[in-house]
Amino acid sequence: MDFDTQLDRHRPYLEMLANMNFDRRLQGRLGVSDVVQETLQEAHQQRENFRGDNSAQLAGWLRQMLRNNMIDAARRHLRGKRAVNRERSIAATQRSSLRLDAILAGDDTSPSDCLMRHEQLLEVATAMNKLPPDQAEAIRLKHLEGLSLKEIGEAMNRSTPAVAGLLHRGLKGLREMMA
């Protein structure tokens, strides 16, 4: 697999991470997909500098860039806002992405585990992108954000049985795609 195809394979995964780590209020306004696009472009331009040989290392390299771009995006967005809010929000973004680094870097103690888990996440993220958007959103809120059925209902403006239906069909879809 050539380098650019590899990069493209990581797009859904990076979007998933970015979504989990941006303050939810900022997600829409900052344009998660723009930040990911920017990150992939940067990776393409700097491919000479990549010194790893497996996909987990590539992912680590991409995460690093994603993190910096996320902080930059938060800065850009908040420029001109009240200084107080600005400082608070940037601090929050920095904190959450530091946390993200800690999670994923801390795993390096057992490289094979890490690689396997990483491959699984990559697969899940890719499969979720192919689901109908409402099912993908319900699954994202349930399994990545950890919201309760009731909270998802409120967030998506639907009844709890409707959300349960979305989850059921979404899980089925994932199952088929990942089989």
């Binding site: 899940v124 699954i139 990545l144 199952r175």
Partner: peptide, 14 residues
């Protein structure tokens, strides 16, 4: 099955 993959990630993130 999905929880077994996403739960560690979610916990790590929080």
């Amino acid at each position: 099955e999905l929880e077994s993959i996403t739960q560690p990630l979610r916990e790590a993130a929080s």
